[in-house]
Amino acid sequence: KDKDLLKGLDQEQANEVIAVLQMHNIEANKIDSGKLGYSITVAEPDFTAAVYWIK
């Protein structure tokens, strides 16, 4: 199951987060929520590491 990592990002921010996570071998998903911006989700086992790397 995926957990929400970040919400309300613009496309550039979302792409930067995806890139950082991929560099650390964390699979992440970018979801277009329309006017609400983009959300990033990661698998539950990767959540703690993902939070660490996006600081």
Rank of each mutant, 00 (worst) to 15 (best):
T48M: 13
D32Q: 08
K55S: 12
A14K: 02
G34I: 03
G34E: 04
S33G: 15
D2L: 13
Q22F: 11
Y52H: 08
K55N: 13
P45R: 15
N25I: 04
K7T: 14
L6D: 02
I18A: 03
A50H: 02
D2S: 13
K7M: 11
A19Q: 08
L9P: 00
L9Y: 03
K3D: 03
D2N: 12
A50W: 04
Y52Q: 07
E27S: 14
G37D: 03
D4F: 15
E16I: 13
N15E: 10
A49Q: 09
H24L: 05
W53L: 07
V42Q: 01
E16Y: 15
D46K: 04
A28H: 05
D4S: 13
W53Q: 00
D2R: 15
K30T: 07
V20Y: 15
T41R: 11
K35D: 11
P45M: 14
G37Q: 05
Q11E: 15
K3R: 13
I31W: 09
K7P: 02
A43R: 11
K35V: 13
K35H: 12
V42C: 04
K1P: 09
S33Q: 15
L6K: 03
P45I: 14
I26Y: 03
I31Q: 05
H24A: 06
I31F: 07
D2P: 13
G34L: 04
A28F: 10
I18P: 00
F47K: 02
Q11G: 09
V17S: 02
L9A: 02
Y52T: 05
I54S: 04
G37V: 08
E12C: 15
I18Y: 05
P45E: 15
Q11K: 10
Q13D: 05
I18N: 00
A28N: 02
G34K: 04
E27A: 14
E44G: 09
G8M: 05
S39G: 06
A50E: 01
A43M: 07
Y52E: 08
D10E: 05
V17W: 13
I40A: 01
T48C: 15
Q22S: 12
L5W: 03
V20S: 04
S39D: 08
I54C: 05
S33R: 15
I18M: 10
F47Q: 02
D32H: 11
L6W: 05
P45H: 15
A50R: 01
I26S: 01
W53S: 01
I26R: 01
V20E: 05
L36H: 12
A19G: 06
E27H: 14
W53I: 11
V51C: 14
L21K: 00
Y52G: 05
D46P: 01
G34P: 04
L6Q: 03
L21S: 00
Q22I: 10
E16M: 14
E27F: 14
L36A: 11
Q13N: 04
K35C: 12
D4K: 12
N25A: 07
H24E: 01
E16V: 11
Q13W: 07
E44I: 07
K35P: 14
V20N: 05
I40S: 00
T48P: 12
V51Q: 13
T41W: 12
W53Y: 08
Q11R: 12
S39V: 12
E16T: 11
I26F: 01
I18C: 07
K1W: 09
K3V: 13
K3C: 14
E44Y: 09
S39Y: 09
Q11L: 15
Y52S: 05
K3L: 11
Q22P: 00
I18L: 10
P45C: 13
E44T: 08
D32M: 09
S33E: 15
H24W: 06
T48L: 14
A19T: 07
V51F: 09
A43N: 08
A49F: 07
K55Q: 13
K30H: 03
A50Q: 02
K1N: 10
S39R: 13
K30N: 03
D46S: 05
T41C: 09
V20W: 15
L36P: 03
D4W: 15
